[in-house]
Every structure is written in C-alpha cells, then in structure tokens.
Design a protein around this nucleic acid. Structure first.
Lengths: 346, 346
DNA sequence: TATAGCTGTGGGATCGTTCCCATACCACGC
DNA sequence: GCGTGGTATGGGAACGATCCCACAGCTATA
C-alpha cells in the first residue's frame, strides 16, 4: 500500500531521477514529465519516505525535547504543558517535528535515544544533572536548556527573568500600601525559586523596608500540599504578626496557602492579600482569582525553537556576549492584573 | 564526531558485518572480536544510526500522537496533558519514541506528516473530522482513536465509560438525599458530554425521579467561562427553584459555576452541592474541593499504547466483538470521594 | 559553422545499517 | 579420509531517497 519513488517513476514513464526532481522540486523537468509525475503522485497518494530522505540529507527535520522531572506530572505540569504547547507550534511553523520524551530517572539514556534517532537539535527542559549536560556536550549536536539549572557558560540557557519579577512583585505590593511581608519560598537550590526570593528581598530593601518586616518560610517542595501545610503551620504568625500580604515563589504554593486561608474563613484580599508567581491557568480560575507574576512560557517556547533553529543552521555562532543576552532575555515577566478582587485589587 | 559502523569495524580490526553482529546482538562472533568491537564502541561512544536501521528494518520504533483541538490549550489541557504523560511513559516502556503533534486546523496535514515519517503506529486524540479518519484508514498503518467521536465500526476507539459514570453520579447524589437536580451540560455533539448527560438522566429515571425534578441547561462550550456565565444567568432558578445540587458534564464547567456561587456567598456544600466529571488536578485543589467522577486517563494512555503495540505486531487481528469490548472498556470511572467538605460530604 | 550555455534526462554512487550468502576452519563420527 | 554441522568471518545487495555527472538536444552568439 506504500510506494517508492521508482514505482512512481515507472508508472509516470520517467526515470527515478526525473521523478525525484519533480517531487523534491529542485532540478529541471519538462512540463509534460512534471504533470505525469504529479498525477501519479496524487492518484497513489504517494508520500516520500522521510527516513530515506533523512539518511542522504543527514537531517531528520526532527527536534528532540526532553523534560527532566523526578515526579509526575511532567507534561501535565501547568507550566511545562504550556511550554511544550508553544514548542510544538513553533516547531511546526519552522518545519520540524518534535520527538518528546520525559525522563524521571534523570539519566543519560533519554539523551542517547535522541542522539541515536539523529534529531537535528535538542531542547532540555527543567533541572537535569550535570553529567547529562556534559554527555550531550560531547556530541556536536545543537542543543539548549530551558528553565534549567546550570552555571556552565558554554550552555545556552533560556530562563525567565526571575529576579526582576521578584523585585516587581515587591514594588507592586509596597505600592499598594503593604508594609509587613510574609513569604513562602520554594526550594532554594532551584534557580528560579532562589532568584525570585532574592529579587523580592532586594526589591523590599531598595524600598526601605527593614528586614524585620519580612518573614520568610522555606518549603522543601513547591507544590500545593506544601503551601497548605506551611500556611497551616504558620497561620498564627501570619495572621497575628501584623502581616498583610503573602508572597510565594510560585502559584502552587500560593493556591495551597489560599486554600487554608479560605478554609479558616480569612477574607481575601480584605484580611490578607496573596500573590503568586507563574500565572498558571488556574490562578485566574480560582475564587478569588490569584494575583501573580506572569511568566510568558509561550514566548519562551517560541524563542527556544527559533534559537535552536539558528544553531542548527549555524547562521551565526553566538559570541559569549550574545549568549548571555540570550540567557537573560529582557523582561518576559509582567504583573498580571486581575479585574476581580483578589490578591490585591487595582 | 559521529562515527559509522565501518569506522568502528576497521578500528576493531573486523569487517562491518562482524561489527554489526556484535552491536545488534544477533549472529555469531568470537569472544575476542566481540570484546574488541565493544571496546571501540565504548571508547568512541558510538551510537548506531537509528535512521539507517529504520530504513532496512522498515520500522522506526516511533509512534505518532496527534491531538486535535481547535483552540489552545492542547498539551496543557488538564485532561490531555495527563493522557500524554501516560502515553509517553507507556511508549518508553515498550521501546517506542513518541512523535507528538498538535493540530488546530483539524486537517489531514498532520497525519500526512506522520505517514511520511513512517511511524509504526498512530494515536489520534480528541475529536477529528471524518475525512481525517478516512484518510488514515487508506494506509495500512496501525492506528487507534482515544476520546474521539466516531461511530465507524472499523475504527478502534478507546473511550471512558461516560454513560455509566453519569448514572453513578446520579445514584450517588440521590443516595445523599438530593431530590431536585440542576445540570449544566457541555455540547451535545461531543460524545462524552452527550453520554454523561444521558447516563445521568437514565440514572435518575431508574431511581424514580420525575423529569420535572431535573433541569438541564446546555452550554455551547465546556470551559470555565461558560460554566460561570450559565450559572450567573440561571442563578435565580437554581437557588430559588428548590434545587440542592448542580451536576456538570466536566470539571471546568463545575469550577466556573462554583466560582460564581462562591462570589455570591453561597455556601458549598451546605446550601448547594456541586459535582463535576473528569477529576482534573484542580478539582482537588479548589477550596472547597470539587466532588467529581474520576476518569482514569493514566490507564487510558497505557491501554492505548499497549493496544497499538499489539496492532503493530499483528499479534492478533481483533475480532469485531473484541473491538467493541475495547471500545467500551470496563469501568474506568470512579467517584472520587473527597475527605473535605465539598460537593457533598461523606 | 563552431562554440558556448541552458534545458532536460537517466545512470549510478551514496547515505549507514542489516541480512543473505559464500567461504573457511575445526571437530566429530563413520 | 570424507562428509556433516556448528562457529566465525567478510563481501555485497538491499532499503528509498538525493545528487553528481555524462550526455543530448536546442538556441543564441561570435
């Protein structure tokens, strides 16, 4: 039921060379030959074998995407799902197909799979061990990291500007009149959680807020359960300590904390304001909606693919300076202003 | 930086045939030859070219997954994200890699891409036009649909048992003492929304609930916004009409409606109970948590891949009877009982 | 008229594997 | 001493495309 170019050629009464020229669209072919070949192609619904094409072209037009994560969910993660959506669309637009893999063992195996499949480039998402990066580096395969954790200057690394986002959040809340700040921060060994907290702290400092008006609680994980647990644990301090606002380093922590506050009949935002980070879909769906710092995952996905495409075509070897610019793209972050009363009202 | 088997062979002092036999692991090779080849492979980190392998084997060990959806989100959809997660894991377990594509044009193009790439099998997710199915059917490529909408008996179609779930929901709510039921149902041209509503209706009927005690509002879309809009619109009827419970055909509608109820200070579940369908992650995250009918997307993903694998290996040509069994697998559905007061309390 | 340049065509090498086949060696039993 | 069968090896075809090259016909120009 599936044909090859030789069969198409003989049915059209031409050589496979001529058929190839017509189908791939480069090289000479007389109008008559072209018409006959295209007719056969149409009639037999001939689909050129991309595997054979890839072999001679030494290009598969596939890019590999690996998401490293020790726990579920991976694709269904509210942030990575959006990122993958954007990557798929961007890749499609540039003519690539995407080979997607999730890796929970944080091993070298998934990268090897991609290498064997001869993808044209590789996008590594989230935290992965150093040995995996070093492994990939050994091959001359274009690759880049998104939202990872590396300080290797050789690695092209796309991240959101978390520090600036943290500072913006601080300025925003301060501008609304808050003076005592409670923070639940995710694991500090994670780059983004660390920088968001740092940015928030520095923002407050620049606004002249004394350190004594900032309470920080560290969370071992950045999920809803931990947000709820820590809020329950520090409920007395938060409500009784004169704090008027809670800032968390991602939305899941904020939603968990909000759930506890609501269960204990704390009115949001009148009694306590809450602000998250990421702008996952459910931040807006929550009642009341969660004010948050938006991370533009959509643009990150598009940028990642566009950049990888440039690397693949070797359009320019990025200088070190350029890499740093790429590693810290200008503000992807915005305060997402909610119309409904939530977090803090505009 | 990337080697071929000939180079490996000559460095090991053997012919490419011997090297191939050692690397692929079938055929004779002396212990000495084997050792020498493996040493070179290890030292040079040789990765056999899967493209060339695929060409001769006429198998790529890739499966294609296409998600059809007219609007964003696709991968980040709370249900499909989970499904894809499961598919990726299951595929990995069986030695397949996954080529993932989203299709918003609902066209034939994405399927053609997969066909050209010579995937071993194809999983089609969500609603797709009939012409796409017919197009795929023309090739002798193993494929199946998940959560789609087709009544073509030739098509192997994995769906959740929505009718049974609807009936279970009705029985559950009735058992808790509810006697007047309000329903917001998603688009009835969607198979699952239709069957969930039908199941619910029939369940009530079997319980002896008169039709006059059931109010059904149809929603043109099954998202949060429509849930909220319709609840706002019918708020008077719902609260004033003696209805004690709202059932919706998916969680997004329920969450939207709940948001409006909470904004209007309706106490859930004391004043009004709410029950959804799907058990998306945020059903449990909401405050109060949403009672819902669980659809086991994880198992559906695993089943889809396992079934596709059987089709690929042609282990057995499923009889029509078996297909039907597959199309309506035994209960994937469970009432998710929440510990917290929500929907209705246990 | 000779020569260059463009259009059009088909043969064959090539990509990196696997696999079939021919060959060779060795040990064994008759 | 000879056939037989298992082990071991390498050469070459095959997979399905692209692309280089040789060649042929045609037109335009010197």
């Amino acid at each position: 039921m599936t044909y090859n170019i030789k069969e198409i050629a003989s049915l059209a009464g031409v050589s496979k060379s001529t058929a190839s020229r017509v189908i791939s669209g480069n090289g000479y072919a007389s109008p008559e030959a072209r018409a006959r070949v295209l007719e056969v192609v149409e009639q037999l619904q001939y689909k050129p074998n991309a595997v054979a094409r890839a072999m001679v072209a030494k290009r598969t037009n596939n890019i590999g995407v690996i998401v490293f994560r020790e726990r579920q969910p991976i694709v269904s993660h509210p942030l990575y799902g959006k990122l993958i959506d954007a990557i798929l669309e961007a890749a499609e637009g540039l003519g690539y197909s995407v080979l997607l893999k999730t890796d929970r063992e944080m091993s070298v195996r998934s990268a090897d799979h991609m290498l064997e499949r001869r993808v044209d480039g590789l996008i590594l998402i989230s935290r992965l061990r150093k040995n995996v990066v070093d492994h990939v580096k050994k091959y001359n395969l274009p690759y880049l990291m998104v939202n990872g954790s590396t300080d290797d200057p050789d690695v092209i690394h796309l991240v959101s500007n978390d520090e600036e986002g943290g500072a913006k959040a601080a300025a925003y809340l301060h501008g609304l009149g808050h003076r005592r700040f409670f923070v639940i921060a995710g694991p500090q060994e994670h780059r983004s959680h660390h920088l968001r907290l740092e940015g928030f702290k520095q923002g407050l400092q620049q606004l002249g807020v004394p350190a004594s008006d900032l309470a920080v609680v560290l969370s071992p994980e950045s999920n809803l359960e931990q947000g709820a647990r820590l809020m329950a644990e520090h409920f007395g301090t938060f409500i009784g300590g004169g704090y008027t606002v809670l800032f968390t380093t991602n939305d899941m922590l904020a939603l968990g904390a909000m759930k506890v506050l609501l269960q204990r009949s704390v009115r949001i935002p009148e009694q306590a304001a809450v602000m998250g980070f990421d702008d996952i879909d459910f931040a807006a769906a929550y009642a009341p909606a969660l004010t948050t710092v938006k991370v533009d995952t959509n643009r990150m996905g598009y940028d990642a693919v566009a950049l990888l495409d440039r690397l693949i075509h070797q359009e320019e070897v990025l200088s070190k300076k350029e890499r740093i610019r790429q590693r810290n793209p200008d503000s992807r972050i915005d305060l997402r202003r909610r119309r409904e009363p939530c977090g803090l009202v505009f």
